[in-house]
Design a binder for these strands. Structure first.
Lengths: 231, 231
DNA sequence: CGCGTCCTTGAGAGTTGTCAACTCCAGTGG
DNA sequence: CCACTGGAGTTGACAACTCTCAAGGACGCG
């Protein structure tokens, strides 16, 4: 259950070099949203917004990747979600953003004024219903993630993560990781070292192959699936 | 951020002996839903529905408490949410339920036919918007829980849990725990023993007082808050 | 080519889990 | 009324998984 399969729609603009999202869209209302947005671009680690900011905008990723995160006073960090091309960010905000959002790599986004989105919601009744469904989906994704964080071992978490990324890429065997090991760790509730060790463990087992630190090839998807389910 | 402050509305029926939910409702559409429901009652550990069932009904807790849970093949269990009086269950289901739901104690609920709810959603446009907001709220609660499961220590988790329950009871210092230690453990991603140890630790510190295993009195709420935030 | 950042690897510590025994309490039946 | 029983909760000793700290290696960029 991919956290980043959520709130997905086709990017309105296709640029080369982007992860191409799996598309299962039959949308007709959502593209209309795009006309409300303006394109912005951010450098790696650039800030979309900070937790506590007035929630003026929401976004859609066009190319690159973004992450939502929260910080403890003592520096612990948790990443709630990764957003890949086609994903929406911040539609669920109320008055203020409840988390910060940053660019994982150089990233281009569509930025919408929430005020306009609200108006559009009133005009097009189908849009509200469609958003509701998308949020329901996000919720079930979040539940899956809670299961992962609450009850899965380190290996199970990484296996689940790889499978979700693969799924997101149309079940491709070759997946690229735009985010750092540290990002993955903070997303899975682990440390960088543990994530790295699990990767090499999978590599040693022959379950995966590492082209580079950011390029994984899944050699034994079945083994990964068993691992992810705790078999 | 209470997982069980979610999707709350005033119970349509007030029965003695129930936890009285904190009310912050100015709803007008949701009570109309109640007329669609029929009252049912379950014994402790009774089943509302099972993961994978066709999602025919949704529910609202009137008295008692319920839990949503998921199981691993090897017996590990995770509780996604507790539902106290006024909480809705299963509104976010799609075709099938994505988790099982059970009564924590003897419980009475309102059961709605999802088909009727759908129709009502179409008739009353305000209802869809209100549900959307509630689901957004649930989502932010889920994000809070992911933070807890991903990055908090055992003590921090239990402290957060007690505070949420207190909040839910109108910030009362005296809170009752309808669920078992095992339920709490599976909700917080811990074991029964760890939960128990943290309780006695807090008791020894003078942070809380245990009237019985199911009755907690918060003696030092400030200490709990600091602990929950990781200070 | 050198520097910095990220990743990997190792050794040891710590928090939480596991296993097992004991206590407490409620419900039951003599 | 009291002993028995079973489930839930507590406590202890030990193990295990993951974290922490530290060092070394790889890769990209200036």
């Amino acid at each position: 259950m991919p956290a980043f399969l959520t709130l997905k729609t086709a990017p309105s603009t296709r640029l080369p070099g982007s992860l191409s999202p799996a598309r299962s869209d039959t949308d007709d209302d959502l593209p209309a949203l795009d006309r409300l947005g303006t394109v912005i671009s951010l450098r790696r680690n650039g800030t979309l917004f900070v937790e506590g900011d007035a929630a003026r905008y929401c976004f859609k990723v066009l190319t690159g990747a973004a992450r939502s995160c929260r910080l403890f006073p003592d520096g612990r960090r948790h990443i709630g979600d990764f957003f890949l091309p086609g994903d929406f960010i911040g539609f669920d905000a109320q008055e203020q953003y409840r988390f910060s959002a940053e660019a994982v790599t150089d990233t281009t986004l569509l930025r919408y004024d929430r005020h306009n989105v609200e108006r559009m919601l009133l005009l097009r009744s189908g849009l509200g219903r469609r958003l509701l469904d998308r949020v329901y989906h996000r919720l079930s994704v979040a539940q899956e993630q809670m299961l992962l964080l609450g009850r899965k071992s380190a290996s199970e978490r990484v296996a689940s993560f790889l499978l979700v990324l693969s799924e997101r890429n149309g079940k491709a065997d070759r997946i690229s990781l735009p985010m750092s090991r540290g990002d993955i760790a903070d997303y899975l509730g682990l440390t960088v070292e543990t994530v790295s060790r699990v990767f090499t463990h999978f590599k040693t087992q022959g379950t995966i192959q590492l082209e580079s630190a950011a390029e994984v090839i899944i050699k034994d998807g079945h083994a990964l699936e068993n691992m992810a389910e705790g078999v």
